[in-house]
Simulated assay, not measured.
Amino acid sequence: MTKAFDMELFLSAVLTGSHATRHRHLRQARFIQSEIAKRWQRSTPWAWQRKHLVWFLEHFLTGRSEATQYYYLLTVQLLARRLERPWVFKR
């Protein structure tokens, strides 16, 4: 039996800000994780490549408001920082 990936534990090292901000980042990171897992069967961020996050930003968020896209971009940047990857995402 495998244990579910704990996104809160994964991001705890880089999460800062108010309680509401941390909660939003966690909620969005879990959503990103579930969508990438559905599309590419990669359940943990350690298995992700830059293309997975770019796909999420470019294709999954199409039609969403600018504010929503911006907040997801912040979460993606936080994930990249936690993975210690030099990935740059433009919006």
Rank of each mutant, 00 (worst) to 15 (best):
L53T: 06
A4Y: 10
F5L: 12
I36K: 11
T68N: 06
A20P: 00
I32M: 01
H52W: 06
W40V: 12
D6P: 01
L78D: 00
H19E: 13
F89G: 09
Q49Y: 02
P86E: 14
T16G: 05
R30S: 05
R64L: 01
Y72W: 07
W48P: 03
T75W: 03
E8A: 09
R30G: 07
L79C: 07
G63F: 01
Q69Y: 03
H23T: 12
L57Y: 08
R50Q: 15
L78N: 06
F56Y: 11
H25D: 01
H52N: 14
A37E: 10
T2Y: 09
G17T: 02
K3V: 12
F60D: 15
L78R: 04
S12W: 01
S34R: 13
D6F: 09
R50W: 01
P45C: 08
F60H: 15
A4V: 09
E35D: 08
R22I: 09
F60P: 02
A20I: 14
Q41P: 12
W48L: 05
L61M: 07
H23K: 15
V88D: 04
R24A: 15
R81M: 05
P45M: 04
H52C: 13
E8C: 03
R91V: 01
W46Q: 10
L61Y: 02
A4S: 13
T68E: 11
I32T: 00
K90M: 14
L61D: 14
Q33H: 12
W40Y: 15
K90L: 14
H19R: 11
S65H: 10
M1F: 03
P86S: 14
L73V: 01
S34N: 11
E66V: 11
R27E: 10
K90S: 15
A47F: 03
H25M: 05
L11G: 04
E35P: 05
Q77F: 00
T44H: 01
W55S: 07
W87C: 10
R27F: 13
W87V: 07
Q41N: 05
R81V: 07
A67T: 11
Q77D: 08
R85Y: 08
W87F: 14
H59L: 13
E8S: 08
T16R: 03
F60E: 14
L83A: 05
R27Q: 13
V14R: 14
